[in-house]
Design a protein around this nucleic acid. Sequence first.
DNA 1: ATGATCAGAGGAACCGGTTCCATTCCGGGG
DNA 2: CCCCGGAATGGAACCGGTTCCTCTGATCAT
Lengths: 336, 336
Amino acid sequence: MKVTINDIAELTHVSKSTISRVLNNSGPVAEKTRKAVIEAMDRLDYKPNEIARSLSLRRTMTVGIVMQDIRNPYYANACWHGDRLLEEFGYSAVICNVDNDPEREQACLNSMGYRSVDGVLCIGPQEETANIVRAVEEMEIPCVLVDTDPEIAKIDTVTLDNVYGGQLVVDYLVSLGHRKIAFVTSDFTSAERERRVGYSEGLKARGIEVDPSLIISQGEGQWHRGECPSLMELIRNGNAPTAIFASNDFKAIRIVRLLHRLGLSIPDDVSLVGFDDIDAAAMVTPGLTTIHQPIDKMIDIGVRILLKRMGGLKGPTEHEVLRAWLVERESTRKIR
Amino acid sequence: MKVTINDIAELTHVSKSTISRVLNNSGPVAEKTRKAVIEAMDRLDYKPNEIARSLSLRRTMTVGIVMQDIRNPYYANACWHGDRLLEEFGYSAVICNVDNDPEREQACLNSMGYRSVDGVLCIGPQEETANIVRAVEEMEIPCVLVDTDPEIAKIDTVTLDNVYGGQLVVDYLVSLGHRKIAFVTSDFTSAERERRVGYSEGLKARGIEVDPSLIISQGEGQWHRGECPSLMELIRNGNAPTAIFASNDFKAIRIVRLLHRLGLSIPDDVSLVGFDDIDAAAMVTPGLTTIHQPIDKMIDIGVRILLKRMGGLKGPTEHEVLRAWLVERESTRKIR
DNA sequence: ATGATCAGAGGAACCGGTTCCATTCCGGGG
DNA sequence: CCCCGGAATGGAACCGGTTCCTCTGATCAT
């Protein structure tokens, strides 16, 4: 049987209250008593029951991390950072995977209420803005959204300037002499949609007209199977772009294989740029030129805001916006 | 303020006990009363407090998943499977990352006791057998070890036959005509050590002498920085093997880049085989020939054993051993 | 009519902690 | 010598549920 605070009380002939006091250093305890209590705890190998503690304190020292897909290294990495930082502050993370499913996202957010977490960090939510807001309000628990639609005004957010990131890519490619640049996306997240805007605006700013046939949008499902028929077709028709901008590294890596299969060389025949700078981007051959998304910093800021809120700080909602930068590797080169 | 069972009781003029009965379908309740209670719950948007429930029932419906490194896709994938399956049975997973640190592994295992999880799934523990056993016994909570040292007799385990897997690789390479096969490892986990045994035995079985200079062992740290000086040296000295067997895909993918940098082509100059079949193995160029480790099946079996134990089943410890198989991609070819 | 049976509901103890309040005991100042 | 104040401790209520036991009243067979 588990040893409880009562067992310690009985053994030391001291009341529960006093035991609790030495446990939490709350209130005065005579040095002699303290010693005796601590010794008894050691002897019985006493471990306070966190559940009982949580019930009493109405505080669990856990925060929920809600994310789209733990198998995606981008999220796994984010999750790792969050977990580590939270741990430093005595919290433990309950990770919650929603598998890119809006319904599960809703359900998961709601379940956080049941699970009595003290706060929620939501990374890359895909659900409609309004639904997110409603769910968050319903839980009555501090919540910070990281890497999300920046239009959400009522909740604290940490976002990346994806439009700027998209422009960065185009600027860079144009500076290498490219003018025929394709954009490949699934338009799945708001981040992707913003990157698309950056792509268009970047081109315009450089005086290049946006060619709709070079914008290839295709659902996540096919990407998971590693296919992109529209891109293949574009190339087979002899309309191959000289550079491809993929809306994230995951897709970029798929494209490496597709081009390889078509006998096209990267970067000799076509330059390729990704977005996110996941670990694999540096491991792949050729090394992928990409936009480094400072997810660790974003998580860091997000967690710190959350900690403040959990500490009881009210005040106006915060909206941090960060900028990404380009990492040049081997998948891009000057056009001949 | 949160609405509790007492608020419902007050509103419906019914006792707590009855509310609890309709909540859990335990014991008889008149249809009229049930209706009224349910309506009141809806009206006040009542959500039972899981913490209080856990305290009372001494059961949290959570299980801890302890693993080495969530950023490693192999573990992320395993974690995902575990989480999903547990969810099906009404449990939620608390993931616990130990970052390849034996001390954290110990601490984490212990903390599971505090956190009152109902069970623990430990994936790829690296700690000394004896320590693991002690920690697990100390928590007095069901625990299943997946992908671990199979010598642990006192705890349920699910393991891969890594020796067999290693032999598989050697057999395959020899059948392609290779005789000078290097083995690259960090000897970090027991899995790696067994694969090494498989490598040696496979060679012997084929009548090839094991050349110690072809076994390259090097700590995890350098791998994380993407380096392998010993392998580089071996090749620069003109002793390049015709095939390389990496102890896992992670290392294999690093090696792809190293060889690329040395101007060696895969598979034309040297064949490369990994182990694990992580997602990236199929995404990388050239596609990596590797051993498919059925981690999903291993997790599946592990979770089912754990569920039985949590259900109260005693009985002798179980030890499942699975076999992996080879997946041929583009990183290997017949020797000229 | 009567006793047995049982559905339906309430009361109270319990899970293992925390905390407010009351009580005791002590020494020091008036 | 008495009173006051504060340190040390105990007692009891509380957090929000579950569950055992008891009690009531209706139904049914005898």
